[in-house]
Amino acid sequence: MDPKTAEAEPTDAQLMEQAQAGDIGAFEQLFDRYKQRIANFVYQFLGKHHLAEDVTQLVFIKVYQKLDKYKPSGKVSSWIYRIAANQAKDELRKLKRRPTVSLNAPVGSEEEGVRELGDFLLMDETTRPDYLLREKELLLQIKKGLSEMKPKYREVILLCDYQGMSYEEAAEVLQITKTNVSAILCRARKKLQKSMSKT
């Protein structure tokens, strides 16, 4: 890395130290640095776009509120991911307590709009969802597989395979041993493979 660039870009630890001292600008930099990654993780964990933004916001509000609780012994990223994983699991528990079945909003993104029978009757061939959604089939299979997984499998496979974390990093986030990460990841992959081969 260019030393000048290194100077210009403070490390996570430096930003955290400044944020702890009350520098909201430093906190905003941390937010900018991690918001996308956290949002991706939360989105894939929950599988719900509209919830993911809310939860991501909550994660960073919690990070902000708990700034003084952070101890420099661990990595900043792991600490933020840990808060995100816990928040996402909380959200999942809430969803399970009160499952919701939206009758109109389609799975995937809200931006895909709502199609109803009336639409089917009016549409010509090129507007039919099969024409538009065929390529999404595989993606849906993965998402379905993920959603069927237990949260503890889901978080490991997302951290390691989706977010590209090492076993060590994932272990730090989840506060489990590396051996456990390895075992859970293997099981999660097998489960997903089995689930995908069923469909």
Partner: peptide, 17 residues
Amino acid sequence: YGQNEAVIDYEDELVDV
């Protein structure tokens, strides 16, 4: 159920979610 997901075939092809 509870996940709002369904994969439906339309004449053996994916139609919609």
